[in-house]
Design a protein around this nucleic acid. Structure first.
Lengths: 132, 132
DNA sequence: CAGTATCCTCTGAGATACTG
DNA sequence: CAGTATCTCAGAGGATACTG
């Protein structure tokens, strides 16, 4: 988005790192939960109502691989596993907050645009098939 | 990511708006290109080497629906279509820049984490099957 | 409890061909 | 030029069952 810079090819685009690996559907929510304090697997699962075990495992593994969360096994019986956000993970708060703020500020404007767009589409449809 | 706030259910999560509709794979690149000046369909297509017509059409239509870009038909022969970023679209520059800066700053650290993680995985594999 | 393994569905990305 | 239409195919994601 910066002016007078070359456009990145997709493969190299640094945004992809964030978008694909860290800022995806579930990860933002997981990080939001872990931001306050470390949590165990099923606690996260309960907080993110709707996520499957598979999806949670995958997201957590990916975040761990990227150094965003830390996985710690507690040798009780049955075993407990705690996930904690890393210092690196905490640095995400600023850019995510910027995104969040944008959405809060401009969501109404976006919704107006959608309404207008969809209306226009319907008008065109009606003009094409006047009596349905 | 903000402290002491309720975790959003997925459907309501305002991040989804951005992540799904505006900050996806191609849209960020398209906006990067349009940020400088309005461009025509095939010019964008050429700049984003690798995108298909279908994907470009879909992304542009979605951005248009959300009020991020404007589509303007120029009645020449053959017809020309120009896409321009809207004022609303320009407000995305700040949050996107924050994301971009994060990636630039922390990419090396993320890559170190990945290397360490992948190494550890391989070590475990070797320990399990000592002679492959 | 915290996963892994398996199956199954179904979207959605890509290639190709056609059109005003 | 700027799309639409159609087909195929891989893979993401869900449901279910099993395990240390």
């Amino acid at each position: 988005m910066s002016n007078s810079q070359p456009v990145f090819s997709v493969a190299q685009c640094p945004h992809r790192l964030l978008l694909d690996q860290i800022a995806d559907k579930w990860s933002v929510l997981i990080l939001g939960a872990l931001c306050e304090k470390p949590l165990r697997f099923n606690v996260i699962k309960r907080q993110l109502e709707g996520i499957t075990q598979k999806a949670l495992t995958q997201s957590l593994r990916r975040l761990q691989r990227n150094g965003i969360v830390e996985r710690r096994v507690i040798a009780t019986s049955p075993v407990a596993v705690e996930y904690e956000i890393t210092p690196l993970g905490r640095t995400l708060k600023e850019p995510f907050q910027a995104l969040y703020n944008w959405t809060m500020t401009y969501l109404p404007e976006v919704e107006r645009a959608r309404l207008a767009f969809d209306l226009e589409i319907n008008d065109l449809r009606e003009a094409y098939q006047p009596t349905a």
